[in-house]
């Protein structure tokens, strides 16, 4: 029962239960709306349904804000757990401690993406006088609700299965040199990385949502590998320290949070226009400029560590 291992985990699960409960309440309203919604009707019942809309909105806004705080809290707790789990030096070991960890982390990021897209569609829906996307947004909500339930189960399985006696691997063994996919080498990876960055800039500038969508998805994966296997080593100033998590620690001035959040925000603003356009069937190019902004911050930040290392030491790692 490693659930009780840390106060943090108990608190975390407790808050997740509360959110699940709130979402459950709104799912009840959502199903009602999906079943009975008829905008042309002038019955009291239809007006009551319209009012339920605001409950769902409020709960989602609350959920998203709390989820963002909880996400940071989750990462911090993993760091804390690494003191308890034998063999783990940072969150890498804890996340990889069982097969649920990595899926859970991906799931959490994906959920935040989905919730944010929901909020944008909701905003478009409320700006109109006839609730044009109410069905679409509520189907999306139901999908999010199901995913949240799955996420919660994953969390339980994950925390219950953290081994306390068998040593786990830490980042030094998880991220070995030859771990790049498609037999890429570092220079190949970097070429793709900067190439994709240029493609994103151009496609965002000319507001080509579909190109931006695919370029950003590729960029997300490329960046993960580029930061872990190349840029990270310059942040740590150690050629063999390849880890996506250690940079979140205090020793590195929490720079990891800036790096990963600017990447996620950039990718989010890059892929969401296309998704929103395919749901609302209307052009929605307003977000592209944020994609340019955050992706540039991300690339500048990661490049900075390499350049400053080179300037300081005259050599590369």
């Amino acid at each position: 029962m490693s659930l009780f291992l840390l106060n943090d985990i108990v608190v975390f699960i407790f808050i997740e239960v509360i959110l699940l409960l709130l979402l459950f309440i709104s799912e009840f309203s959502v199903l009602k709306v999906l079943k009975y919604w008829d905008f042309s009707a002038t019955t009291t019942f239809q007006y009551a349904l319209e009012k339920r809309n605001y409950l769902v909105n409020t709960i989602i806004y609350f959920t998203v804000s709390v989820k963002i705080v909880l996400f940071i809290f989750f990462v911090k707790s993993l760091d804390e757990l690494s003191l308890l789990v034998p063999g783990a030096m940072c969150a890498t070991g804890v996340i990889g401690a069982n097969s649920y960890g990595n899926i859970l982390l991906l799931f959490k990021i994906f959920m935040l993406f989905l919730l944010s897209i929901w909020i944008i569609i909701n905003k478009l829906d409320l700006e109109s006088k006839v609730f044009p996307y109410i069905k679409e947004k509520y189907y999306l909500f139901s999908f999010i609700f199901v995913l949240t339930c799955i996420e919660f189960c994953l969390e339980l399985f994950y925390f219950m299965n953290i081994p306390l006696s068998v040593p786990v691997f830490c980042c030094s063994t998880v991220f070995k040199l030859d771990n790049l996919p498609f037999e890429l080498n570092t220079s190949g990876l970097l070429i793709i990385y900067y190439l994709l960055f240029v493609v994103i800039l151009i496609s965002s500038y000319y507001k080509k949502s579909i190109i931006s969508f695919f370029a950003n998805i590729l960029f997300l994966f490329t960046s993960y590998y580029a930061v872990t296997y190349f840029f990270g080593t310059y942040i740590y100033e150690l050629p063999n320290h390849k880890c996506p998590f250690c940079m979140l620690q205090k020793e590195y001035f929490y720079v990891g949070y800036f790096i990963w959040f600017s990447l996620f925000l950039g990718v989010f603003f890059g892929i969401s226009p296309y998704i929103i356009e395919s749901i609302t069937l209307k052009k929605y190019t307003y977000l592209h400029k944020y994609c340019i902004l955050f992706t540039t911050i991300f690339v500048a930040l990661s490049t900075y560590f390499v350049v400053s290392y080179y300037l300081k030491n005259g050599v590369l790692l």
């Binding site: 659930l3 009780f4 291992l5 840390l6 106060n7 985990i9 108990v10 608190v11 308890l84």
Partner: peptide, 10 residues
């Protein structure tokens, strides 16, 4: 410590 703390938390 944590184990006891956790139960207490519940």
């Amino acid at each position: 410590f944590y184990y006891k703390g956790g139960i207490f938390m519940i």
